[in-house]
Design a protein around this nucleic acid. Structure first.
Lengths: 102, 102
DNA sequence: ACATCATATCGATGGATGTCAATACATCGA
DNA sequence: TCGATGTATTGACATCCATCGATATGATGT
């Protein structure tokens, strides 16, 4: 999870590296299935991977793939409980994104 | 430019239509070239399409394509001045995104 | 150790996307 | 009206990405 640059978009011209970093985090969010996952986890405070295929209508491998992307982007945090994987939203990461956009 | 739903992500579970709408706007932002365009325009207050190929190192058709996506997403607003196309950032649209993420 | 269940990885595939060259369209000045 | 210039569209191509079935990995309880 790269550090997410910088100052608000309009403060100064975004450099190449910062643009890449910000784009990759936004890309992780920019998918309807992943947004539903983040929303469900945020609304409940936490969420178990076992519930998400039913919630989204997607297969277990697909959900696993999406969750990995969100974790890699620093948007979700993963916690193993027995054989279940639980996730929480990294509120600070979302706030970081907002602080750049606005 | 669709109306961008809803309440913060963690307030209630995001519906299918809202997830699609939000994802499409985020997708418009989630590209390094487009982020550089938005940043340049925001920093200067406005920007002319004629300057962007040099700024980004991309061809004129590529820039035109990216600008269209940003306008379609409601992130930029286009204004024709003679034969030049000028753009401004729709601050309200960015604020709308932030109000959903945080 | 073994069977079971939850999750991750692999391989394949169809569709979306960024990019450019070529060309069309639009606007202006002469 | 005509040439010049800025922008949009078209067509093609390579790459990326979401998705799934099959399978591997990991953890638990017996």
């Amino acid at each position: 999870m790269n550090e997410l640059c910088c100052v608000p978009l309009g403060t100064q011209q975004l450099g190449d590296a910062d643009a890449e970093a910000l784009a990759s985090v936004l890309k992780a969010l920019a998918d309807p299935v992943r947004l539903k996952l983040v929303s469900a986890i945020a609304a409940a405070g936490e969420g178990c991977a076992c519930d998400f295929p039913a919630l989204t209508g997607k297969s277990q491998p697909t959900i696993s793939h999406h969750l990995s992307q969100l974790v890699d982007a620093g948007i979700l945090e993963r916690e193993q409980r027995g054989k279940w994987a639980w996730f929480q939203v990294n509120e600070a990461r979302l706030a970081e994104i907002c602080s750049i956009l606005c």
